[in-house]
Design a protein around this nucleic acid. Sequence first.
DNA 1: CACACTTACGATATTCGTAAGGATT
DNA 2: AATCCTTACGAATATCGTAAGTGTG
Lengths: 295, 295
Amino acid sequence: MTVKQLRAFLALASTLNFAEAAAKLCLSQPALSLLLKNLEQRIGGRLFNRNTRQVNLTAEGAAFLATAKTLLANWEDAEEELRLRFALQHGKLVLAAMPFFAATLLPELLGIFRQRFPQISIEVHDVLAERVTELVQQGRIELGITFEPEPATDLQFFPLYQDQFIAIVPADLVKPYTSLTWQQLLQHDFITLQQPSGIRRSVVQALAQAGIELQVTFEAHQLATVGRMVSSGLGVAVVPSLCRQQMQEQGVQCLAITEPAIIKTVGVLCQPRSRLSAAANAMLDVLLAYQHSEC
Amino acid sequence: MTVKQLRAFLALASTLNFAEAAAKLCLSQPALSLLLKNLEQRIGGRLFNRNTRQVNLTAEGAAFLATAKTLLANWEDAEEELRLRFALQHGKLVLAAMPFFAATLLPELLGIFRQRFPQISIEVHDVLAERVTELVQQGRIELGITFEPEPATDLQFFPLYQDQFIAIVPADLVKPYTSLTWQQLLQHDFITLQQPSGIRRSVVQALAQAGIELQVTFEAHQLATVGRMVSSGLGVAVVPSLCRQQMQEQGVQCLAITEPAIIKTVGVLCQPRSRLSAAANAMLDVLLAYQHSEC
DNA sequence: CACACTTACGATATTCGTAAGGATT
DNA sequence: AATCCTTACGAATATCGTAAGTGTG
């Protein structure tokens, strides 16, 4: 039984008229007639009762109709899914990254990838760490750059590097320190990102473990804003070390911070490599290559 | 995407060798090569990574493998089921019959059918004659065994036999009669089935035509009950001759009845043969064959 | 007699197998 | 050099569309 035959059956079942059905199938009406005749011969019985004046499903045809519909639907869905999979290889890669990463290291990495695979277009979702994980789990993106998550699902996590968070303080607050303790830092007003931020959660969790409760004076939605707030002398903040350059450009001072140090692993969350598209695999290679060059 | 292409993909995925896979498919090896090339072109990417020395699934091909297997399995299962249905090796037949018929002749006929077509399951609705007709008209059953209805609709009626109703009387009421007239019969208390019964309606109608009004003393819902009532000496009754054996087993006497004789045609009500399923057609043949053997 | 499905037949397109070509070990 | 996939090309097959045929209302 061929796909074409099944299409013919369904078209005729829906119209009960050879001419109409043939038009739907972009076939001449005799061609449809033959197609159906061959199908009926193959399965050993009539699917339609027909004379020159009317066409009707037989009992067997009616019983087969529902089956046939799902058969063809599954067939076409599978083909389309496969085609989409390859479409990624041909043209498009979708990934997500935490905003601070998307704004710092990612552009450079994308540049390297693009140089090697110029025919592949890339869509970047710069969304909060939690949302990155969600998108990967939902299969809406192939690669997500985020903090190391619980190793729960069947997803894989490839570490990229370990980020030791740094303190940023106003330039006029510079002292002979090369590093600060949290005790010293918290003598100043504290500025953080607003609630769902992965950076903020990391800080709060680490401090809680050290028995320190964080008092927040100012909150903002974007790191750039936090940087400006610090450079304006409103207070101090803590950010991933990856943001050092960006912060320094905004005129703040960066200092290591200890007791406790906050160290978070940043990496790539994705399906097992074998299930990734060729494009995603290539991108993952680029990301992990960066890691090695760093060592 | 054609069925043949999918078969080619699966064959090659299982062997990872063009020559072997081609042999499986009863094709030349270059033909398989072309088949796969066309498939890959159609879906826009490679399913196998191959050089002249080895063949391997791509990530996309591996992901598609499971899908492809179930696709083809479903396809072939559906086709086979349909084929079996036509070959009467599979399927279900739903029929209805008047209770007195369902309880007398029908089991024997079902046995004959089942012997010939053991793979077809049968659902019997033993319901009142009126309801039998309804079910056929509604298309909820394919065959209905009932009294000959008005020749109204587009349904067909195939007569099976003519039933001349008989009187049943208590054993102690036996007289030298071999038959009774209604006048003689109605000197005794009369027992019938309750109102919607087809048997009762037949009797009432026939008597009305002869100008006789029926006085009913006892009513019951099932023929077996009527039989017991008669054998207990409560009165007399009239039943289809088909019930003779069943009645005699209950210890009543059966006598022909005349003036008027009540003769009703019993047969099969159904759609025109061409609209029946193969199974229903076969059953109809069995039913009508019984008729001929009877003559 | 008109409409709608089927059959017939010639043209086109597809598929196939044989033979030659090319790449990898 | 041997093996195995790919490409080339002519032949067989299948499919299609036009036109004629058939049956039903």
